[in-house]
Write a protein that binds this DNA or RNA. Structure first.
Length: 369
DNA sequence: TAGGCCATCTGGTCCT
DNA sequence: AGGACCAGATGGCCTA
């Protein structure tokens, strides 16, 4: 909010005045910005110096505003030592400047400073790009991934934290968690939109909680949230072919898609190579069973063995009735139907092994026991 | 249009 | 001195 407040052009002059006060000098960045012609924030530049050492020199500045009587000091004053500026500060009630005397800003020094600043900017950009790349990598291994509707940075971190926590709890307890608590754990602290997104990715909107007997798979039909009987969704999501393919059920919502898109879209789907998606899928979070990391597609008897405990979505879920009590927090936007996890592409197929979170192997082994 | 999110610039601080 | 890291400031873009 403060940023917003400061963003108000009507307030910016006051903000800069404040900045000048707070930093006991004119705004140095105004000079720095002058050096960067492609940046719009050069608006305050009135000096060709950009050496931070000149901060607090008491040089003239519009930033100091109308109450600053030092404006008439002129540029000559800028090269004076701190004492002069300090006295001026004292008159303004500002603390006397301490520290080494300011060195005169020669053109050579100014040029060096400018280059230094530009290099620092480039490094900072690179650093932030690396950070964003790492965040993208993280997005791909949390239970909800979409290239079209990326989680925000903060939501990615929150979800990752929750995910780690949930997996840790699974390992610690040695039990399959309750579906509801699992989802609640994942979504703890997330915004409502993100919660809905995650729930959608997990195929867990309200209707999923009111299950009808599984009519298609016939395996995990249940009307309860039984840990052992409820068909947990695999959150291996957002396939590269996440399109409303002709052979896919309408699973896509708000730009993300579920594992089912990949299932029904399949490699043979015309949409499979949609340029919209090209990254790896999110890992499975089939907490009701093993993580099926070694599944192959198309399914084979080995696969059946592999996801013996895997989630199976009931087509009946799509049309199932729901009661308000089951609405939970997920809303109803993310409902999908007709989900068969037999068709879920194995995580191993879409995630290079080196990208697989280490926990998955352990968890996979665990659920195979 | 307000608010959220983001990229970028910037100066400060700490460390090598 | 220079690099890494951080946080504040700012403007752009997007969406409800």
């Amino acid at each position: 909010m403060l940023t917003r407040l400061f963003s108000d052009p009507s307030l910016q002059s006051d903000v800069h005045k404040y900045s000048g006060w707070a930093e006991d000098s004119e705004s140095e960045d105004s000079k720095m910005k002058d050096d960067d012609l492609d940046h719009e924030r050069c608006r305050l530049g009135d000096d060709d110096t950009d050496d931070p050492e000149l901060r607090g020199s008491g040089a003239h500045s519009e930033n100091l505003g109308e109450d600053d009587d030092d404006d008439d000091l002129g540029e000559d004053e800028e090269d004076e030592d701190d004492e002069g500026a300090g006295e001026g500060d004292a008159e303004d009630g500002r603390p006397k400047k301490r520290g080494p005397k300011k060195r005169k800003m020669t053109p050579a020094r100014a040029q060096r400073s400018k280059v230094r600043r530009q290099k620092a900017n480039a490094r900072e950009r690179t650093r932030m790009h690396d950070l964003n790349s790492a965040l993208d990598s993280l997005r791909k291994v949390v239970p909800c991934y979409s290239k079209t509707q990326k989680l925000s940075k903060i939501e990615t971190l929150r979800l990752a934290k929750n995910y780690i926590w949930a997996l840790s709890e699974i390992l610690r307890s040695g039990k399959r968690p309750d579906l509801v608590s699992y989802v609640q754990t994942l979504c703890k602290g997330l915004s409502q939109p993100t919660t809905n997104l995650v729930a959608g990715c997990l195929q867990l909107n309200s209707r999923n909680f009111l299950t009808e007997p599984c009519q298609e798979s016939g395996r995990y039909a249940s009307s309860s949230f039984s840990v052992h009987s409820y068909p947990y969704p695999c959150a291996r999501l957002a396939s590269p072919h996440c399109q409303s393919g002709s052979n896919s059920l309408p699973l896509r919502t708000h730009g993300y898609c579920s594992a089912y898109d990949s299932l029904y879209g399949g490699s043979g789907s015309p949409e499979y190579n949609s340029p919209e998606y090209e990254g790896p899928l999110s890992p499975p979070v089939c907490i009701n069973g093993n993580f099926s990391l070694k599944h192959q597609s198309p399914p084979s008897p080995e696969h059946e063995k592999g996801y013996h405990y895997s989630m199976h979505y009931s087509s009946g879920l799509a049309g199932s009735r729901q009661t308000p009590a089951h609405n939970l927090v997920f809303g109803s936007s993310g409902m999908r139907s007709g989900i068969h996890n037999e068709n879920v592409l194995p995580y191993h197929d879409v995630h290079p092994h080196h990208e697989r979170p280490p926990a998955y192997d352990e968890l996979n082994a665990f659920f195979h026991n």
